[in-house]
């Protein structure tokens, strides 16, 4: 019994429990959501947020912070709705180019020892500017295959739930269970010992940033699949949502301590928190504050658990 309720287990259970509590509250407030159709509408916009959160998680894992992911996802959305739709080859080349650009950013930050907050804050304006250049006025059209993937209606389980489980599962196996993943995480937790053991920190940082870019690209494509067309400002909210999602899911600002499954759960919790507050008919002026309050409550619970862990 005591093993079951050990702080370690409790801390691991906190993200799924918060999500479950929120879901039950939503079901109670609005029974219509308790259906295939309802869950689909409730969660489909959480899929691109989850992908952006995974991207942010890779960056946080190597002890950096990405303030440009929102602008980056917006740019990807604009490219997806224009080039990838009209001239697929150019579109694919541009998206691959963006991932390479992300890897190069990682290299720049590592070699010049620059603070990632400053570099990515600057890049957020570059991404936004490029997005406006690609798509000066809102428009474009989602490629048919992305649209049909995102509006897939599999029998029994709604698509957003399947997508979330697949994303969380694949990243978990790669980062938490594979040998490569352990090395990548180690670069955030204890870079010095990793370097002594002969690994190249530069390569690790570049691959982590490239992975972040890859998931950022997936996020933008998923978003356009849902919205059908793009807007240069479409995903600016994702910067803060993704950071909050990682932290809510059990990640920490010190490198190496992240959880892919937690990050996906955190992203879904944040998306649901918005719906929950709107079902409550809360005045919009209070909604941002209330969203913050939900974050604080979950994080405060975590601090309490960690403290009881320290006492032992």
């Amino acid at each position: 019994m005591s093993a079951l309720l050990s702080p370690r287990v409790l801390r691991g259970l906190l993200p799924p429990l918060s999500l479950a509590a929120l879901l039950i509250a939503i079901f109670w407030l609005q029974p219509r959501t308790m259906s295939y159709f309802g869950l689909n509408l409730l969660l489909n916009l959480a899929v691109p947020i989850a992908l952006a959160t995974i991207a942010q998680m890779f960056i946080l894992c190597v002890n950096e912070l990405d303030l440009s992911i929102g602008g980056f996802v917006s740019l990807v959305a604009c490219i997806t709705a224009t080039w990838l739709h009209d001239t697929p080859l150019l579109g694919i080349a541009a998206l691959v180019g963006l991932i390479v650009a992300y890897a190069l950013l990682g290299a720049l930050i590592h070699i010049r020892n620059l603070p990632s907050i400053v570099v990515t804050l600057g890049m957020s304006f570059v991404w936004l500017g490029l997005a406006v250049l690609v798509l000066p006025t809102p428009g474009g059209k989602a490629p048919e295959y992305i649209r049909s993937l995102m509006t897939l209606k599999p029998s029994l389980v709604p698509f957003p739930i399947i997508a979330s489980v697949v994303i969380a599962g694949v990243v978990h196996l790669f980062l938490m269970r594979s040998a490569v993943g352990t090395v990548l995480r180690g670069a955030g937790g204890n870079p010095r010992s990793l370097e002594r053991a002969g690994w190249s920190l530069l390569k690790i940082k570049m691959s982590m940033f490239a992975l972040a870019g890859f998931f950022g690209v997936l996020s933008g494509m998923a978003l356009v699949g849902l919205t059908t067309s793009a807007d240069a400002n479409i995903a600016l909210r994702y910067t803060l949502l993704s950071i909050a999602g990682v932290i809510l899911g059990g990640g920490e600002f010190v490198g190496g301590r992240v959880s892919p499954i937690g990050a996906v759960i955190g992203a879904m919790t944040l998306a649901l928190a918005g719906s929950f507050l709107s079902f409550l008919r809360l005045n919009p002026d209070w909604q941002i504050g209330a969203q913050g309050a939900i974050l604080i409550v979950v994080l405060a619970l975590r601090v309490l658990i960690s403290r009881s862990e320290a006492k032992r």
Partner: peptide
């Protein structure tokens, strides 16, 4: 923000409204 309003509209569908009148953040998004 576009994503906020998209989520809001989906919530309104779930709340069972028969009609939604929109002043939109983006003509396409």
């Amino acid at each position: 923000q576009v994503t906020e309003q998209a989520a809001q509209i989906q919530n309104l569908i779930l709340q069972g409204y028969d009609a939604i009148v929109i002043n939109a953040a983006s003509p396409e998004g």
